[in-house]
Amino acid sequence: MLILLPPSEGKTPAVSGPLFDPGQLHFHPLNDARKLVLAALAEASTGPDAHAVLGVGPSLAAEVARNTILEESPCAPAHRIYTGVLYDALGYEDLTEAQQRKADDAVVVISGLWGALGFSDPIPAYRLSMAVKLPEIGKLSAFWKSHLAGVLAEHASGHLVVDCRSSTYAAAWAPEPSSAAAVNVFQIRNGKRTVVSHFAKHTRGELARHLLTRPGADPATPEQLLAAVAEKWDAELVPATARKPFQLNVILPGQGH
């Protein structure tokens, strides 16, 4: 089982730690592409239009400035750098050592800067969304799509892929539809299903935690995934098509339910 996560938009910088070393990251074939994006990000972050290029406001000036010194910044494991609703709900620090090892093996974070990361890979805090179009690189989702295809297809071979990414990050790599399930979250409001982004992030984090902590064998098929998720939530499974993976719809109760 592999669990795909998006990064968090906000990051918690490491106070101390080793400097960035691409040799410590998973997926070594991506290192040349990572180097290109690192350089393009540093250059874009020094420009007069840096905030417009990166799609951030003036309140994030310190984060934009940090983009120019990433290779001299202290690093920490990705699961500690990434914070926010999804990562809080996953709660890595509260897992047992065995569960943390399982998370380190199972979780892959798809990133606008790094392409793909293992959960324990040491990285600095940075600011860059997959939706950004960097000068010299272009739109990051398109850039990474060509680089991730072979690397992640090989890594995912023989595994069920549980896709908890947002659409922005899902655009960078599409797993084999027959062995993948995209997690969607709906809430019932006035008797109708509604998409709610905050609850979606929280629920995807809780779902990842449930899969990492539940006893028994990991789900190996979309049908087994549905059974595992149904231990905690109302859920349904929509069959895959030639181009679209299974859709695992988690349905939260709400107003009017």
Rank of each mutant, 00 (worst) to 15 (best):
T68I: 08
V53M: 15
V109D: 03
L152D: 09
Y87T: 03
H147V: 10
A52W: 00
L54C: 15
T96F: 02
G84K: 04
M130D: 03
A149E: 14
L60I: 08
D88S: 13
G55K: 04
S111R: 11
E93Q: 04
L113K: 01
D105M: 12
G112A: 02
V85K: 00
R101F: 00
G150L: 15
R101Y: 02
H51M: 10
C75L: 04
P74C: 06
A125L: 15
L113M: 01
D105P: 07
E72H: 05
A61C: 05
E136F: 04
W144C: 05
E154K: 12
T83S: 03
G150E: 15
H79M: 11
A76D: 11
P74E: 03
D105I: 03
L86R: 01
H51P: 02
C75I: 02
I81F: 08
Q99C: 05
D88E: 12
L86N: 00
V151C: 14
A98Y: 00
S73D: 02
I110Q: 11
A52G: 02
A116G: 12
L90M: 13
D105H: 13
V132I: 10
E71G: 02
Y92I: 06
F119C: 01
S73G: 01
E71H: 01
P135F: 12
F143E: 02
E154C: 08
V56M: 13
G118W: 01
M130W: 07
D94S: 13
A125W: 15
L140N: 06
R127C: 14
Y87L: 00
A153D: 15
A76K: 04
L152M: 14
A103M: 13
A106W: 09
V56N: 13
A61W: 00
A89Q: 09
S146K: 13
L90I: 15
W144F: 06
L60C: 08
I81P: 07
A131E: 11
A65Q: 10
D121K: 07
H51F: 05
R101C: 03
Y82R: 11
A98N: 00
V151R: 11
